[in-house]
């Protein structure tokens, strides 16, 4: 649920109020296969020793457990751009948040539809 995601996120980010911007969450609008939905997380950051992305968290409102994965990065990554594949049991909002090296938090979300399919032009 949205409440579970908010609680989990607050715990992961130390309760810092998230801002919008800097983080991009790439997901299909409609899932082809709810068991394996490609997802990409990109955070706008120079990834230098004094200005980098420390953490990226991915959460799902409609799954049994809200936390999906948490990534911990170092400046040696060069670029904050991570892809994986996730499960989505039903149509729901997916939430992503980034914690920067200065402690600021940025978040975004995207609705993914899981449909029974069929029909077409």
């Amino acid at each position: 649920t949205p409440e579970e995601v908010a609680t989990a996120l607050a715990k992961l980010t130390g309760g810092v109020t998230p801002q919008s911007g800097k983080i991009t969450l790439k997901l299909p609008e409609i899932a082809e296969n709810g068991a394996s939905v490609p997802v990409t997380l990109i955070v706008d950051s120079p990834m230098t020793a004094d200005n980098y992305v420390k953490q990226i968290h991915l959460l799902a409102e409609g799954n049994p457990t809200p936390e999906v994965v948490s990534f911990y990065l170092t400046p040696a990554a060069g670029k904050a751009d991570i892809s994986t594949r996730m499960r989505l049991g039903q149509t729901q909002k997916v939430v992503a948040a980034a914690v920067m090296s200065d402690g600021s938090v940025y978040s975004t979300s995207k609705e993914v539809k899981v449909t029974i399919g069929g029909c077409g032009g």
């Binding site: 299909p28 399919g117 077409g120």
Partner: peptide, 24 residues
């Protein structure tokens, strides 16, 4: 290509391929 091929048509026809609008 049609972004929703494995949804509007059987996914088992194209099990190894993933589609989507993919603006990027």
């Amino acid at each position: 290509a049609f972004p929703y091929t494995p949804i509007a048509n059987p996914r088992y026809m194209v099990p190894d391929w993933s589609f989507g609008i993919n603006e990027d």
